[in-house]
């Protein structure tokens, strides 16, 4: 059990109020018809599933019902932050550039 602060409601709530929606920032190929099977299969099924920091989507299922992005450590459930989808992309890209 952990506490998540929904960036839309801006209030910390228990995890049970939320629904996990999987890895964030999986880009859909812009022209699926042109993709090879391997790239399409990768898009559909392959996951980073890291042990450590993970950018993931959550939905505030029993609250505002909006999606947002959380950076959470899968090894110890620590949460670094939560962003709206737009805000998250900027934070994620900044991190990628720094790395």
């Amino acid at each position: 059990m952990f506490v998540i602060k929904c960036p839309h409601c801006n209030e910390p709530r228990e995890e049970e109020e939320f629904h996990y929606e999987g890895e964030a920032f999986i880009a859909r190929p812009s022209n699926p018809e042109a993709e090879a099977d391997e790239a399409w299969g990768d898009y559909l099924f392959m996951k980073k599933n890291p042990k450590g920091w993970h950018w993931e989507m959550w939905g505030h299922a029993a609250g505002c019902r909006k999606f947002f992005v959380v950076k959470r450590n899968t090894a110890n459930h620590a949460i670094d932050g939560a962003w709206t989808l737009q805000g998250a992309r900027a934070a994620y890209e900044t991190e990628q550039v720094a790395a």
Partner: peptide
């Protein structure tokens, strides 16, 4: 439902 390596759940 969330991914984890922590060997504990909610």
């Amino acid at each position: 439902h969330y991914t984890s390596y922590a060997q504990r759940g909610s």
